[in-house]
Design a protein around this nucleic acid. Sequence first.
DNA 1: GTAGATGCAAACGCTTTGCCGCTTA
DNA 2: TAAGCGGCAAAGCGTTTGCATCTAC
Lengths: 137, 137
Amino acid sequence: MSGSTRNTRNTRQREVILDVIDAAQGPLPVGRIHERARREVPSLGIATVYRTLKLLLAQERIVAVELPGEETHYEPAGRGHHHHFRCLDCEVWFELTTCLVPHLDGTTLREGFTIEGHYLALYGRCSACAASSITAR
Amino acid sequence: MSGSTRNTRNTRQREVILDVIDAAQGPLPVGRIHERARREVPSLGIATVYRTLKLLLAQERIVAVELPGEETHYEPAGRGHHHHFRCLDCEVWFELTTCLVPHLDGTTLREGFTIEGHYLALYGRCSACAASSITAR
DNA sequence: GTAGATGCAAACGCTTTGCCGCTTA
DNA sequence: TAAGCGGCAAAGCGTTTGCATCTAC
């Protein structure tokens, strides 16, 4: 009963947009979703992408991912609590499968702040880029 | 020699904008800076705020703080590496003085990602709000 | 006196909305 | 066939830029 699936139709546009998000290796911004979905449906308008993302969010089939200094990205829902890693070379955001700082939640800092949740993003090099930077010399 | 201080004038507007940022307990977004600076200089235009922030950034007198799902905030420079805490009640962003996860940098994850830097934001209740939620009943 | 700064308004870029013809069920 | 949907264009909204006026030095 989560979200509005009532009176909702299955269209090629929605199918393609969800496919693009599901097939990605990490969260995608609106522009990239539009770009990739257009390969299948060239006439696809940007407004439809925005409306579809809003619908998919309401249906809890995707989640919005906020990344520091970047536009909102989107990824499939249901992957639980996890964080993201950005490669400084290829500039791709990857999804991590585990939480690196599970101990933080529930603790209270000296300043009196009680931590109920956290957000972590990592930066560095992915293995592919690290390898090519060695072979490149 | 950091930034352009040459051919730069000291105006009341700039002085007030920097004062507002320095006096804040945490990073502020453009709108709030404008709002507070206007108390001193009512005619202050939003364009001047944007231009001044850009100048202060170039002079490395302030830094831009990216917070997940929020507009860019600004705080005084020179406070080193630290993170931010957002109170879910009063919705204020506070600055923390220490890094809670210094061990992350330099490590390589199983997936092959080499961590060179990290970004952490915390959510919860500040002591004032935690206290008032108790006395409120 | 003059280069630089401000304030206003127009321009921009991204997101949302309105409208109407098209499509799914 | 009808309600939902998509595409286009216009409207919003936050940020940037152009320009004429003002001001710090």
